[in-house]
Design a protein around this nucleic acid. Structure first.
Lengths: 338, 338
DNA sequence: GCGAGCTGTTGAAACGTTACAATCAATGTC
DNA sequence: GACATTGATTGTAACGTTTCAACAGCTCGC
């Protein structure tokens, strides 16, 4: 590997000059600059980030730890964040925890070891003291898609309870009185809060909360949705909900697919509401009604907050809550006969 | 930030001992080990990867540079790669170039600067000399989903020409004689090769190659597919193809959505074949016929090759070509009247 | 013709870790 | 009891940058 020393020797200058060419080109004469740059190209010099960074203290890298990189919701948020980071010359590395808490810990540790400029994270638990430790150690952290209960951390999220309420109210308006809530694991805050919102809507409508039937899934994935579809189909017709609210669109798509496969008509036999409004929701077999979240903006704002915390000494923690809205499509259309 | 020196002072040992606890715990007595570890926890010590790595030479990080992290195909491949990497205690950072060549260059440079253990990349151009430079400089590189023309690089891909041929043959078998090829930009190897495969099938069937109508898109995305749908709909009925083969499922889903919106029936007015068989293909409005690729295996194999190149001194470059297959679904079902 | 003020350049000291030779203490061997 | 052997610990020299005080030539102004 070629180092500044090699470049310096080749260009016949001191090592300090090479560094100046790299970092303060205005301080070095045109002629030597050319000579040094030529030597760099000649030798194929590539800055050693580890050394640079060891000396300089901090890197221009940020990490984004997501629950599930294969979920289009997260990849869209990540894209927004990347956009925000790239504008300030930062680079974003995406880390996929695959809904596993141990992986989250592992990635957070690795990112710390790398002394990244900051970390965006969709944590299992937004109140996890480990996250506070990070900020205490000087690593900016922004919670994405989760809102901590105290305001001691920057956070960007969308109002999940409101989203849950919107979904349930929509179904109630259509006359449904028994609704399945498909989601899980319940340890995921997003799932829990959306459920709480739906429950609140039921209660507000004067319905007993047992009319919101919890169908827990192992993971908020398409497979989880399919499985839920089987379980719903197995219920006696009299006890079967006429509508389902799914904690995300992957679940909704799986549920839809399985329901159709088992001969149910959507929305006539089962109305379905998803969550996230991913690009594929509108292209589904029956276009999905879903709760839309401002994905790109979520990412952009998160990146903005993170960079502010990283660069602005008088940064103050900020918590931004976006508002979701419902997009009605065929999966909850009032059936012709109703 | 707390360093080994601080830990050493707190534990009342020399700095070398702390390093031993970290790297060769067997060489240090139980008692001191405990003491040192306690001090580490106490002070919240986190290894500085930059320093460690500056000294030790190489890191346990690998980078995966993908064309589009929001495309489920790539995120599934990445998941496979991550799995393979995690098994060997490596960590994978995902980098999204968003189909832009400048971003690819930028990320490759950053990863080099970080002296990653290796790079997985889906390059614009698998024959790019820049990739050879990387390996020449000692950074293992594995081409993913692209096959270089020479065997001077490890590579893992799926036979795109075969895939294209399978798709076209399927449509020809169903009696279609004018077929649209929806894809772009044509500078993407995957697009070009799938097109070549389809073209070969047309010629083999004795049809003129003008019967394969190229509908170029700006990007291989859902939006690109929608746009293609508009363009197809604008053609005079007599010249309009009766089937479309899309270079990936995103395009196919967009095309499907737009076609249905404009009143065309799928497959009766327009049969559609996609590519990749992403999870959402089967859940589409009309379940998509698609070319299936072994995504997870692609990622796993890529990681395996990369780690071999990184760790095994007598590594030999290997090129693995997987075989795709066609999954027939409703979007190409022979219509009732046919 | 001399000091002040530039501009470019240099050399050495740090950054936090690891590896390795050197040291020290204790144990075992004859 | 002298000496080798082992085991635990230490000090020091790297690794490749950046930073910064110091320095060498210059040009100016008086």
């Amino acid at each position: 590997m070629v180092s500044v020393k090699d470049v310096a020797r080749a260009a016949g200058v001191s090592l300090g000059t090479v560094s100046n060419v790299l970092n303060r080109p205005d301080r070095v004469s045109e002629a030597t600059r050319q000579r040094v740059e030529h030597a760099m190209r000649q030798l194929g010099f590539v800055r050693n980030e580890a050394a640079r960074h060891l000396r300089a203290g901090r890197s221009k890298t940020i990490g984004f730890v997501v629950l599930d990189a294969t979920n289009p919701f997260f990849s869209d948020v990540a894209k927004g964040a990347e956009e925000g980071a790239a504008g300030e010359d930062y680079v974003l590395f995406l880390c996929n925890t695959d809904n596993r808490e141990d992986r989250e810990r592992q990635y957070l540790m690795r990112l710390q070891e790398q002394r990244v400029a900051g970390i965006l994270v969709t944590p299992f638990d937004a109140d996890d003291p480990a996250l506070r430790q990070l900020t205490a150690r000087g690593i900016p952290v922004v919670c994405v898609d989760r809102m901590p209960s105290k305001d001691d951390l920057c956070a960007v999220a969308v109002d999940n309870q409101l989203g849950g309420r919107l979904a349930a109210e929509h179904l109630l308006d259509l006359g449904h009185e028994t609704i399945a809530f498909v989601g899980g694991p319940h340890s995921l805050g997003q799932v829990r809060e959306r459920w709480l919102g739906a429950r609140a809507a039921m209660l507000a409508a004067g319905l007993d909360e047992t009319r919101l039937i919890r169908v827990d899934t192992e993971a908020p994935s398409v497979a989880g949705g399919r499985h839920a579809g089987e379980r719903l189909a197995g219920l006696r017709a009299s006890r079967r909900p006429t509508a389902a609210f799914c904690a995300n669109d992957l679940l909704a798509l799986g549920l839809l697919q399985q329901s159709v496969a088992l001969g149910f008509r959507v929305p006539d036999d089962l109305a379905i509401v998803g969550y996230d409004d991913i690009e594929f929701a509108s292209a589904a077999a029956v276009p999905l009604t879903s709760i839309r979240q401002p994905r790109r903006e979520l990412g952009l704002t998160a990146a903005r907050l993170l960079l502010d915390e990283a660069e602005n000494p008088q940064h103050r923690h900020e918590q931004v809550l976006f508002t979701p809205d419902l997009v009605a499509r065929a999966s909850t259309r009032r059936s012709a006969g109703a």
